[in-house]
Design a protein around this nucleic acid. Sequence first.
DNA 1: AATGAATGAGCTTTCATTCAT
DNA 2: AATGAATGAAAGCTCATTCAT
Lengths: 218, 218, 218, 218
Amino acid sequence: MKHMTNVARAASWKTASSRSERSERIRSALLSAAAEVVGEVGYAEASVTMITQRAGVGQGTFYNYFKSRQDLLDSLLPDLGEQMLDYVRDEAVGGSGFRDLEEKSFRAFFGFLKSTPQFPRILNEAESFAPAGFQKHLDNVSKRYIRFLQRSMKNGELQDYSEGELEVVAYMLMAARSYLSQRYMSPDGRSVELPRLAADAYMKFVLYGLVGRPPEEK
Amino acid sequence: MKHMTNVARAASWKTASSRSERSERIRSALLSAAAEVVGEVGYAEASVTMITQRAGVGQGTFYNYFKSRQDLLDSLLPDLGEQMLDYVRDEAVGGSGFRDLEEKSFRAFFGFLKSTPQFPRILNEAESFAPAGFQKHLDNVSKRYIRFLQRSMKNGELQDYSEGELEVVAYMLMAARSYLSQRYMSPDGRSVELPRLAADAYMKFVLYGLVGRPPEEK
Amino acid sequence: MKHMTNVARAASWKTASSRSERSERIRSALLSAAAEVVGEVGYAEASVTMITQRAGVGQGTFYNYFKSRQDLLDSLLPDLGEQMLDYVRDEAVGGSGFRDLEEKSFRAFFGFLKSTPQFPRILNEAESFAPAGFQKHLDNVSKRYIRFLQRSMKNGELQDYSEGELEVVAYMLMAARSYLSQRYMSPDGRSVELPRLAADAYMKFVLYGLVGRPPEEK
Amino acid sequence: MKHMTNVARAASWKTASSRSERSERIRSALLSAAAEVVGEVGYAEASVTMITQRAGVGQGTFYNYFKSRQDLLDSLLPDLGEQMLDYVRDEAVGGSGFRDLEEKSFRAFFGFLKSTPQFPRILNEAESFAPAGFQKHLDNVSKRYIRFLQRSMKNGELQDYSEGELEVVAYMLMAARSYLSQRYMSPDGRSVELPRLAADAYMKFVLYGLVGRPPEEK
DNA sequence: AATGAATGAGCTTTCATTCAT
DNA sequence: AATGAATGAAAGCTCATTCAT
């Protein structure tokens, strides 16, 4: 699926078998199309017409699946956000210890962006255009992050931080991922390439900041 | 003046004396009005009508001062950004040493938000809606930040970071300010109140991360 | 149909059966409405609102049929011009000889104006407001005219004129039709009544000028 | 005066001596500027701003000299029309006989266009945009033309035409001048160059048509 | 269920005119 | 008398949404 063209993927519902599966595929095609369009032109400029054309369905069809344009926009980030979290979880599985897991998931995040370079823009604009979805996403991610930090702390891997402080730190690290992904976005918005230097600096700062020790030489 | 209502402040040009002063005040009223409106409803929804009504001038007047709606939007962040930098510079003046200066300017940033709570949203959306202005602002701020970090490093106050790494760290800290300001925005978007805990956690993380030592007890 | 009011005619699409027929009727209603409006107030004042109201459709509907206001204006003269040429051809059919054909088509032109009194104004203004359409129309008409003159010349009916001269003469005769139609337009612009005297004078001048003999008594 | 640049001519009021002369010059500068502007962009697009800028006076000044934009537009053609008639009269003076006078004045008309190539467009559009001025102009010109034709007739130089017929013919010849001037306008609208062929064809047709004899060899 | 044409609210922008200086 | 900034009416156009097919 990864290498089908966008349109082909979008229109894949045409081969659906059962009625409900077809339905599911159209909905998904609309979401994918919306992700692409919003990634390219932003929420404000993403019109229903553009989205339905990209998805290969009629304009009116849109309203069989979403109550309104805003309804879809609200679904966009939560949908993508879960994909992102699933991806990162899968990639980081089997890691051990704070340092290893943090690095794996940091890299996995940027790995995810290779297939979904629209994500940073969608995330950034969602705060204004789909605030509910944005909050939901932030909660999801921060909760997971905080749990991870707390576990690491219980294992004695981190400096002494209170639970409230860990929440703040979690936000700072999410912020860092977000800013760095935008910072290293290609000008056309179609790919993100994080330089090794940036990844190293991130890890160095985080390890000093949380563990209190510099990264070990590899 | 600080506590006049927005509209009253905006319409203060009516008392202007000379013609050029009046002109200056209207331009400034339009920019202030735009900052308020964009802060409330975002770039995309900020219409010329809303802005001129808020500023207390006729619709057509807008185009005596700005070539187009986009022209004003492009001026918005650079304008506010300079105000912010001026404010922070004034507040941090007289501080000494990395720890002191960093803390002073961190707090000053949030102090600035008390008078301009629209800033975080404007900054965030500018990336999409006024990209040129956004880049300009980011360059301004990051350059100043990096210089500050380099100076601190020369003074032997920081761990060993390369110049390139310092740039990455600067971005991470700008990101942290941005995210935290949004995290602690009141739901109505009209004020930012950074809890002591958050400020402490920030300083703790930064000091561990950069200096390698925990914050001294005050 | 001829005597339905403008609005009623325009709104006749409401009784259309198939979808594509309905489409065709709306497009045609818009063109008719535009012809009327332009005939009354001129190109410059013919607003999309006026045209759609006259056609009995919503404003937005306009843009389902024409890319822009200018797009419709550009279609106006070519559209009417063909109607005019068709009408004149039909009326002049069966005539024989230069004198007969010229007179028949001259009268047919003014006959056409009975049903489309807006034509002279549209033609006149098109030069400024729809130059492409104007050129197209002039080419169509002049080519036909020149061919007719050349045929008459080959038949030995005319004085000796070179091909280039015939083109100039064709322009002069088109000019005459245009000016005379404007000269004898009723003050309200709603009808053209060419006096017998004018038609006679035209024919007399043309016959002397081209044939070299006065019109025969009828 | 003929060779001053437009702007210089327009602003020549600055050197005026008496108050009323200055006044007169500004009014005249506005009319000249309007002629240029309308010649270039047409009545519909000729804004007060463009005209005052071209004339070198402030925008507000306009309304000290004309009641409204339309007021000036209405004055435009009568003003230019008189200049044209004066010019043609001067050039044709001393001619003798219909043939000579007609040819002289025909050529003089095109001579006038060399210095005022805006004339055809202004004349053409005036019918729609300044109908009163247009009628006035047409009356002026046609009356003169008819008088000329009647005089020639009394001298036995023309075929037998009734007075009413002469009026129609006069219109036809005015139409011819107008169409030919537009036909041979350069694409940029800045000059008119009538080819010898066209002038010859015109004279040939007119002489056959009115005199009944071909042009004599020169 | 899928469609796409019809719709009007609402946008940005222009410009003739007014009026305080 | 000359000015140019202020103004709002009115324009062309877009697009989310509805609805008949």
